[in-house]
Design a protein around this nucleic acid. Structure first.
Lengths: 158, 158
DNA sequence: CTTATTTCAGCTAAACTGAAATTA
DNA sequence: CTAATTTCAGTTTAGCTGAAATAA
C-alpha cells in the first residue's frame, strides 16, 4: 500500500486549517445551514423565507425593498421569496395605498405559527451542532459570536 | 413616509435571527470566506487550493482521491484544483509508479511559500473578523469552535 | 423627464451526479 | 470480468447584474 491507509470515513482535516478561526466558523456555518435547510424544507420554506418571516414579526409590515435592505437580500431575489410565502398564505401582500409602486407585506397568523415552529427547529439544530458543549459554553460561544458580528465593519459585505 | 425611514445603510437584522447561534456562525463564516477568497485571489489561488496545500504539508504526498476524502472535496472537483496548482508550480504531480491509475501529488517549495503567505492572510482576516474581541475572547471562541466541530456526528455531512 | 419599486432574464461560481477512459 | 482513479459533461442552487414595466 503506497500511501497511509484510510482508517476513517470522516475527513481528517489538516491541523493547519483547524488553527484558522474563520475556517472553523465557515465549516460550522455550512453545517448549520445544511441542517436548517433540511428541516425547513419539511415546512415548505427556505432560509431566506425564515429570515423574512422573522423580520416581519420583529419590525412589522414592510415593503419588499425594505425587507431586502434589512436582510441583505437582493430585491430581485425577494420575488422568489414572495412566490413561496404568498401562495402558502404565510404573508399577506397588498399594494401600499400611499405609494402604489410598493407592496405592503405583513405576517399572517399562519406565518407567525410557521415562524415559531422554525425557531424551534433552530434550537434543535443548535443542540445538534453544539452537542459537545455544555450550557455555559454554548452561552459563551453565542455571546462572543454576537459581539464579533456586531463589531464587523458596518459598511462591509458580510 | 408610510413606513419607518431607513436610518442606516447596514442591514439591521431581526433580533429573532441574532438569537440563532447557527445563523451567527453562518454569517461570520460567509464573511470569513469572502475575505479569504478576496485575499487569496491575489495569490492566484482559491479556498480549496489553500486546503489542498495545507493537507499536503501536514500529511505529505497523496493521491487526488485521498486529498478529496480528507478535505471533503468531490474527486471530480479536484481536477479543477489541480488545473490551478500544477501550472502555477505549487504542487508536483507524477503518476504513482506502484499504481499508475493514481497521481502522486506533492507540495513544491514555492507551494510551501504560498501556503505560508496564505496562512498569514488568514491571521489578518481573523484580526479583522474578530476586531471586537480581545485576545482572551478570541482564544476562547477558537477553543469552543474546535470542541464543537470535533463533536459533530462523524458520519454527518458538514 | 427623472426616480423608486417590483419583476424578469440571464450570468457566474460552487457543489454535486453520472458516466467514460485508463489501469489494476 | 470487476473495481479504483481520474476526468469530463451536465445539473442545480445561490447570489448577483442589467434592464423592462409601472407608478410617483
Amino acid at each position: 500500500m503506497p500511501y497511509p491507509a484510510f482508517v476513517s470515513e470522516v475527513p481528517q482535516l489538516p491541523p493547519s486549517l483547524l488553527e484558522i478561526t474563520a475556517f472553523l466558523m465557515s465549516k460550522m456555518g455550512i453545517a448549520g445551514r445544511r441542517r436548517m435547510g433540511d428541516r425547513l424544507r419539511a415546512h415548505g420554506i427556505g432560509l431566506w423565507d425564515l429570515a423574512v418571516l422573522a423580520a416581519l414579526r420583529d419590525f412589522g409590515p414592510a415593503s419588499q425593498r425594505e425587507l431586502g435592505a434589512r436582510l441583505g437580500i437582493d430585491p430581485s431575489d425577494l420575488v422568489a421569496v414572495m412566490d413561496v410565502l404568498v401562495p402558502l398564505g404565510l404573508v399577506e401582500r397588498d399594494r401600499d395605498p400611499e405609494d402604489r409602486r410598493r407592496y405592503r407585506v405583513a405576517l399572517s397568523p399562519s406565518g407567525r405559527a410557521t415562524l415559531e415552529a422554525a425557531l424551534g427547529e433552530a434550537r434543535e439544530v443548535r443542540d445538534d451542532l453544539l452537542a459537545a458543549l455544555d450550557e455555559d459554553e454554548r452561552a459563551t460561544l453565542h455571546t462572543l459570536l454576537r459581539k464579533a458580528y456586531a463589531g464587523l465593519e458596518p459598511r462591509a459585505r458580510v
